[in-house]
């Protein structure tokens, strides 16, 4: 099926978002965000894929430069995506620790009640 990989990407994004919506724990919500972001990796790599034995966009003495490779631009964007995702996850986890320290809870619903 030609659009199967794209559908997997969409499914991951929606599944991650659904997890955030019904989350009862901040760390769970952060992991769900990572799942949603994984959908963007799949989408980017699926866009750059080429059928018929296209190789990785890295050349050397055995693989002479040719244009029969998968798209290097989306691969570079995926790399950017992963790095940003990792740093954002770290920042969010630090925030979760700080919230737990200040409010004594990591349940998003209870945090709303504490706001007043």
């Amino acid at each position: 099926m030609a659009i199967y990989a794209y559908l997997v990407a969409g499914y991951l994004i929606l599944a991650g978002s659904y997890g955030i919506v019904r989350s009862r724990h901040l760390v769970h919500a952060i992991v769900c965000l990572s799942v949603a972001q994984a959908g963007t990796y799949v989408l980017l790599l699926a866009v750059g894929y080429q059928r018929g034995g296209a190789s990785a966009p890295v050349f050397g003495s055995t693989t002479k430069p040719n244009k029969d490779v998968v798209d290097p631009v989306v691969q570079a964007m995926t790399l950017t995506d992963i790095v940003v995702s990792a740093t954002v996850t770290a920042l969010l986890l630090a925030l979760a620790i700080q919230i737990n320290r200040r409010h004594g809870t990591v349940d998003p619903d209870e945090l709303a009640a504490l706001k007043g």
Partner: peptide, 27 residues
Amino acid sequence: PHFGTHEHLYRDLAVPAAVQHGTANVV
């Protein structure tokens, strides 16, 4: 474009540009 398509416009520009700058790892 179809999954696995042979048309990648950015690839067709990025690969020659990388080779021209002597970089084997196009990513």
